[in-house]
Simulated assay, not measured.
Amino acid sequence: GLQVPNLTGGIAEMLPNHHITKPVLIGEIQADGQFDIVSQTEEVPGDAWTDFLPESAVLISDWQTLNCGMYNTETETCVQLNSNY
């Protein structure tokens, strides 16, 4: 739940899945290699696992409630108990 100012003027929040909220920026690359931002969203929550792959669509990460970063919602088990780092 830690909240801090981010570099785009909003507030980044640490979520129970250990990912942060951040805005999505769409831009054009300029001739000098810099970006011209043409669109920006409000902060969106980071997701640990993609819903677009069947293998990870059933996974959630919730360190606050489940104490697990790779919880399988079908088998109701924590697949990974320890960090890889």
Rank of each mutant, 00 (worst) to 15 (best):
G1I: 05
Q3F: 02
Q3P: 02
P5I: 06
N6S: 08
N6E: 09
G9E: 08
I11V: 09
E13P: 03
E13D: 04
E13T: 13
E13N: 05
M14W: 04
M14Y: 00
M14K: 02
L15N: 01
L15C: 08
P16E: 12
P16Q: 12
N17H: 00
N17P: 06
H18E: 04
H18P: 00
H19R: 11
H19Q: 13
H19E: 15
H19G: 02
I20Q: 04
I20H: 02
T21D: 01
K22I: 03
K22P: 00
P23H: 02
P23A: 10
P23V: 04
V24K: 12
V24L: 15
I26A: 14
I26P: 07
G27M: 07
G27K: 09
G27N: 10
E28P: 05
Q30W: 03
Q30P: 02
A31N: 11
D32E: 05
Q34N: 15
F35G: 03
F35R: 09
I37G: 07
I37A: 11
V38L: 10
Q40W: 06
T41M: 04
E42Y: 03
E42F: 04
E43I: 04
V44M: 10
G46Y: 01
G46V: 06
D47H: 11
D47C: 08
A48M: 12
W49P: 00
W49S: 01
D51H: 09
D51A: 14
L53G: 15
L53E: 15
L53A: 14
P54E: 14
A57C: 05
V58R: 09
S61W: 02
S61A: 12
D62W: 03
D62Y: 04
W63E: 08
Q64C: 05
T65M: 08
T65R: 14
T65I: 13
L66E: 02
L66F: 03
L66G: 01
L66C: 02
L66M: 03
L66V: 03
N67Y: 02
M70Y: 03
Y71E: 01
N72H: 05
N72Q: 00
N72G: 04
N72D: 11
E74T: 12
E74I: 12
T75F: 13
T75L: 04
T75W: 10
E76Q: 10
T77S: 13
T77V: 14
T77L: 13
T77M: 12
V79H: 03
V79L: 05
V79K: 07
V79A: 13
N82G: 07
N82F: 15
S83I: 10
N84Q: 07
N84M: 06
N84C: 06
Y85T: 13
